[in-house]
Design a protein around this nucleic acid. Sequence first.
DNA 1: GTCTATAAAGCGATAGAC
DNA 2: GTCTATCGCTTTATAGAC
Lengths: 188, 188
Amino acid sequence: MAREVADRTELLPLLAEVFRAHGYEGATLSLIGEATGLGKGSLYHFFPGGKQQMAAEVLGEIDNWFEVNIFAPLRSSDDPAPAVAAMIAAVDGYFRSGHRVCLVGVIALGASRDMFAVQVHGYFKRWDDALSRLLARSGVNARTARQRSADALLTIQGALVLARALDDPAIFRRALADLPPRLLAKAG
Amino acid sequence: MAREVADRTELLPLLAEVFRAHGYEGATLSLIGEATGLGKGSLYHFFPGGKQQMAAEVLGEIDNWFEVNIFAPLRSSDDPAPAVAAMIAAVDGYFRSGHRVCLVGVIALGASRDMFAVQVHGYFKRWDDALSRLLARSGVNARTARQRSADALLTIQGALVLARALDDPAIFRRALADLPPRLLAKAG
DNA sequence: GTCTATAAAGCGATAGAC
DNA sequence: GTCTATCGCTTTATAGAC
């Protein structure tokens, strides 16, 4: 019950973990209050829009992290091998090697998808664009580049699902390790 | 509000769609009542254990469908190419070519995972066992067979997530089409 | 900025008439 | 077997003291 945070900068990551663990529907204000050490009064002071605003800002921060740490580096690179390796390393770090789940994926599967459709769509679309264009710049034809990019994104999401379902994070690491050769293959 | 069903045989598929669309937490008895045309009294007559029993029986029926239509055929085949093709066709049909989501995956990602951990684990484990052993029987070494099987399962789950996130079911069909060559490749 | 108290609605579940 | 009414609790959200 002790006060854990001073401002929303420290608040959003705590909210993110609650949404990740319980989904949008399952993340109650009581759980959020426990995780932050804040009462409802304080929470509504920071987020007058309530739970929906909390989730929207959490998604915004996640989007921003990926933009800076993953999408932008992919866009500014012309050498696919190190760029893909850096992406994989960043993804592995972000998802704690399979111990952490993807909130965007969780929301995409749930009933709150419609509420956050724009953010969910944008997250995957910009990732897909950045990755497929990098591959295209390296000489892969556009259609193959698109296909390989979608394969990478869906592999990451599916590995998180399967790792959690079987309670075996190693599945995630193995899936990530498989990606670079598939993305960088000569034929295709 | 009209009565839609006569017994639980017709009831479970309706419940399944509600759980698929809203997740365990989001599937309220009101929604279930609307979908089935039944009042709470009738629902508790069929399922004295309430919502948890409803979800458990839905998972049981899903498990049974996959056991009969996918796992058993994989186990009883010694020719991997047609067996894999049949599995892909069955999966495509079951998930309505990407328009339908996987309830087991939805639950695996949510907070109700712990409640249904045994069913969730068993579903993926028996699929993985049946598929990897088929590949092993065809001459692929055990380790590679395991890896390819996990790749297939995670690709299906990830494709469902990405197809829903981008609102593009074609992603699912393309991902399925990619699987047979990857499962049946000679090298490895 | 944080709290408690509370409103209004919805939740899962139960009781009992028919 | 189905219904309505209702219980007890939790939910999101608000009001107002400090």
